[in-house]
């Protein structure tokens, strides 16, 4: 392959601009390789976050030709054959410098979630769960925390409702706890109120960009919304609660064959 031109956003919270660079592209390169080459050749101080370069840590999220992606998993040969490649930081987070954003919002949101609390271990000192029951939360636990889903969530990106709605990553984290067979905490009221599950209107943009192909909307957010509806808006359930007292959150416990 030959030289390619990159327009990379350079700047900080006060402002910035696109700067043009050229670098040689060889077989198998990913966009992050090209950025590293530019950094080494002509922009030593270029700020870019990355760690594993193998799609496992979720650090190198950015917008490549307008699409939110992990730059370490975006091959150069998947780019249009000609023309400039435009690279900019994730839009839904404040910029620190160049391609690096301030993602501290996510760490604050995580802290708001009551931690996992298991039922006691069984008499033999183990916890028993069957694979079928953990398959669905193992899907959610694949999350790398790349925050690409947060970047495309229009409740954040376009409407700035970060305070009202925690966003897809944290819905998935909540779902992984809510559906955990061992967990005994009831987070449904919190999911409704503090985390604002009602704000998601199921456009599935988050699911589309997930590099781990987690079915965020259908397998995570919609079931949470349903549980909220069951709890707060189902008139028959409300009547039952009035008559029989508040219902304990239903958690399916595993059935183990001896």
């Amino acid at each position: 392959m030959a030289k390619r031109t990159f327009k990379i956003w350079r700047g900080n919270a006060e402002g910035g601009e696109f700067v043009t660079y050229e670098t040689d592209i060889t077989e198998g390169m990913v966009v992050l390789d090209a950025i590293h080459q530019i950094q080494s050749e002509s922009a030593n101080d270029l700020a870019v976050r990355w760690n594993c370069k193998a799609g496992k840590c979720g650090s190198c999220s950015m917008e490549i030709n307008g699409k939110p992606k992990l730059s370490c998993m975006t091959r150069m040969n998947s780019m249009p054959a000609t023309g400039e490649i435009v690279i900019q930081p994730m839009k839904a987070f404040p910029v620190v410098k160049d391609l690096v954003c301030d993602v501290s919002y996510n760490y604050e949101r995580n802290k708001m979630i009551p931690p996992f609390s298991p039922r006691p271990r069984e008499a033999d000192g183990t916890h028993r769960m069957v694979q079928d029951d953990v398959d669905r939360i193992q899907e959610f636990r694949k999350c790398l925390e790349c925050f690409l889903c947060m970047d495309v969530c229009h409740v954040h990106r376009d409407h700035g409702k970060q305070k009202e709605f925690s966003g897809p990553r944290w819905m998935i984290r909540l779902a992984s706890l809510e559906m955990h067979p061992l967990d005994i905490v009831d987070r449904i009221p919190l999911i409704k109120k503090e985390h604002g599950s009602g704000y998601c209107n199921i456009t599935r943009c988050c699911t589309e960009v997930c590099p781990e192909h987690i079915n965020i909307t259908d397998n995570g957010i919609i079931p949470l919304k349903e549980r909220v509806v069951d709890r707060f808006y189902d008139p028959i359930a409300m009547l039952m609660r009035k008559v029989f007292g508040p219902r304990k959150p239903h958690k399916k416990l595993p059935v183990i064959n001896d």
Partner: peptide
């Protein structure tokens, strides 16, 4: 596991 890890079963 007490802290939330979900290993294969």
């Amino acid at each position: 596991e007490d802290w939330g890890a979900v290993f294969d079963r």
